[in-house]
Computed example of a mutant assay.
Amino acid sequence: MHIADLKDVRIHYRIDGEADGAPIVFANALGTDMRLWDPVLPILPKGLRVIRYDKRGHGLSSRPTGPYSMGSLVRDAEQLLDYLNVKDSIFVGLSIGGMIAQGLAVKRMDQIRALVLSNTAAKIGTANIWQDRIAAVRTGGIEALADATMDRWFSRAFRANPEVALWRNMMTRQPVEGYIGCCAAISGTDFYTPTSGLRLPTLGIAGSEDGSTPPDLVRETVNLIPGSRFALIRKAGHLPCVERPGDYAEQLGRFLTETGHI
């Protein structure tokens, strides 16, 4: 575990795999930390330099006073990759992580050579929906949203598994100000125009039972980028890397091969 001091924020990050391997960067969902990717990492292809981090206000990263903007979240990722001297990475972003990925690809094409947009969209929800969630958290804490979020995150079969309690605990133990700050960032983001200008290899991944970013929404965003490919992971919700890690790693491995990254 390491901390990158980026002046206005301290970002917790971790690097696994080969020190001189092809870089792949993972950005996780709202209410999760870098452990989101634990089920997938052991079954990824060899020869990768795997970089994970906790976005501001989450995990072991610092929690600046909110609300946050998507621009600040994109800048955090940009500065972290500069700090680590990362160029030409494949950037995998899930949910809000996928929004960060879109923004960073528009801003720094030198840092990203290919995108994986997982369970995300150019615009997620409406300002009113996010303001309602922020109000609920201010009143009742993240716990107030936890059960409904698990219903959106996971398929019915997975919710019957005791393991779902681990992910619920992860969500409810995130810092409230960090969670609210990132809700505000999502609320103010509409990337339809900038994302439609991207020209780089892109894989979109959706879960067939995703209640947060349904497959059609993911497909609509991915289709903004010419030449992109879309993959549907069945029997999975918003976090297919948790529910179907084998299928998820297979899609990533195929994309890494298609793009010549490994």
Rank of each mutant, 00 (worst) to 15 (best):
L81Y: 00
R75Y: 11
Q102V: 09
S69T: 10
K87Y: 00
Q111W: 10
I96M: 07
L117N: 03
S69Y: 13
A146F: 05
I129E: 11
Y68H: 03
E143W: 13
M150A: 15
M70P: 02
V92D: 14
D88G: 02
I90Y: 02
E143D: 15
L145N: 12
R133V: 01
G140R: 06
G125W: 00
E143G: 11
T120A: 02
L94D: 02
I129N: 14
R75F: 14
I90T: 01
D76P: 08
Y68L: 04
I129W: 09
L115V: 01
M150C: 07
R152Y: 12
A122V: 04
A114S: 13
N128S: 07
K123Q: 09
A105T: 04
I142Q: 06
V74L: 07
Q111H: 15
L80S: 11
T126M: 15
M70A: 11
Q102C: 02
D132Q: 12
M150H: 09
L117C: 05
L117D: 02
Q111A: 13
R113N: 04
T126N: 13
L145K: 08
D147I: 06
I96D: 01
R133P: 06
K107A: 05
A136V: 07
A135P: 15
R75T: 08
R138Q: 06
V74G: 11
V106K: 15
M109R: 12
A114M: 10
L73T: 06
I134A: 13
V92I: 12
I90D: 00
E143Y: 13
V74P: 10
L117G: 01
L104D: 00
M150R: 12
G97D: 08
L145D: 06
G93L: 03
I96R: 02
G93D: 01
R133C: 00
A101S: 02
T149D: 05
T126L: 09
Y68E: 02
D132A: 13
R108C: 12
A136C: 14
L81F: 01
Q111E: 15
A146M: 04
A121V: 03
M109I: 13
